[in-house]
Amino acid sequence: MDINRRLLIAGLGGVVACGLPRTSLASTSARIGDMEILSVSDGNLVLPGAMYFDGLPKEEVDSIITPLNISKNQVEPPCNVTLLRYDDRVVLFDAGSGDGFMPSAGALIDSLDAIGVTPDDITNLVFTHGHPDHLWGVLDDFDDPVFTEAEHMMGQTEWDYWTDPETVNTIGEARASFAVGAARRLEAIEDRMTFFGDGEEVLPGIMAHASFGHTPGHMSFEVRSGSEALLIGGDAIGNHHIAFARPDWPSGSDQDPDLGAVTRARLLDKLSHDKITLLGFHLPNGGIGQVERQDTGYRFITEDM
């Protein structure tokens, strides 16, 4: 599979709160048959390292992250939004953060513009899950829908979870704002939404795979043409360090850490065994690469690694 990268330096997403220009990987592309798949940047998150590393064996964590120059104090995962073009369809997987989540994120519209795509060009908007960096970009600053020509699509289980009034009371204090924000945005786009379940072909050549754990209804998507395949993994495999080296360890980024670990191990085994390319939302270098089994775990391989 040919993978091409286009890097746009400073200024693509405007100026963030600290006054520094946002750098952005505008696009990383691959092809599956007649389908063009592009990873476009929504910027990056800035998160405490404790979300990934607290409660894990310190020495083993150090042995995994030190060679990768990853800080234990703060991590800055990229946000790679998938764009797929084929036939007369322009399909976007997730909507990015918009301007309401983190100042380091929210570059999606500028990144799309850099490759000649406008929000009105999107024919289908397919969600992996309802966390802010995947959903909040559906509305603009005036709370109007951004992707006005698109059919919006979400797994039924995920929709039911975020639209349940009890979710804000059960999700935990740290994520309560996620529930409030998701419910408000989903209500605004309800009349645009269609639903699907595990194993369904959501669009020709694109099959939904339940990958629950990160959220209760998280979905991944297998894009296939003949023997070629790519998995749009969302956050089911949420980083390129601990998640690969020790997929069995629970992750604080998952709402159900135990189920998330089971899902992660299953997906990594399938990806490595079947030689399926992975596009991960928070993986480096545009997020497109191969999964290779290594020692007791796996490693993520891109052309730049």
Rank of each mutant, 00 (worst) to 15 (best):
269 D>I: 07
158 E>W: 04
130 G>W: 06
300 F>A: 05
73 N>A: 09
5 R>V: 12
173 E>P: 03
128 T>V: 12
146 V>A: 00
71 S>R: 08
74 Q>I: 13
34 D>H: 11
20 L>M: 12
241 H>N: 13
34 D>L: 10
26 A>D: 07
135 L>V: 09
142 F>Y: 15
177 S>A: 09
141 D>N: 15
120 D>S: 14
70 I>M: 10
288 I>R: 00
116 G>P: 11
68 L>R: 15
105 A>C: 10
84 L>Q: 04
159 W>Y: 15
170 T>F: 05
260 G>I: 05
74 Q>P: 03
13 G>C: 03
264 R>T: 07
26 A>L: 11
201 E>A: 09
160 D>V: 04
173 E>Y: 03
28 T>G: 02
235 D>K: 00
210 A>T: 10
44 N>W: 12
193 M>Y: 09
163 T>M: 15
172 G>E: 13
181 G>S: 05
75 V>M: 05
69 N>E: 11
12 L>N: 06
190 E>P: 00
205 G>Y: 09
253 S>I: 15
109 I>D: 02
83 L>Q: 06
2 D>Q: 09
304 D>P: 02
271 L>A: 00
230 L>I: 14
110 D>A: 14
163 T>R: 09
88 D>K: 13
159 W>M: 04
50 A>M: 08
76 E>H: 10
47 L>T: 06
292 E>H: 09
17 A>S: 12
163 T>Y: 07
2 D>W: 06
14 G>L: 05
170 T>Y: 04
54 D>Y: 12
139 L>W: 07
250 P>C: 01
164 D>N: 15
95 A>P: 01
56 L>D: 03
4 N>W: 11
191 D>L: 15
49 G>W: 03
297 G>N: 10
192 R>L: 04
161 Y>L: 04
292 E>R: 11
232 I>Q: 02
80 N>F: 05
283 L>E: 06
274 D>N: 12
69 N>V: 15
168 V>R: 04
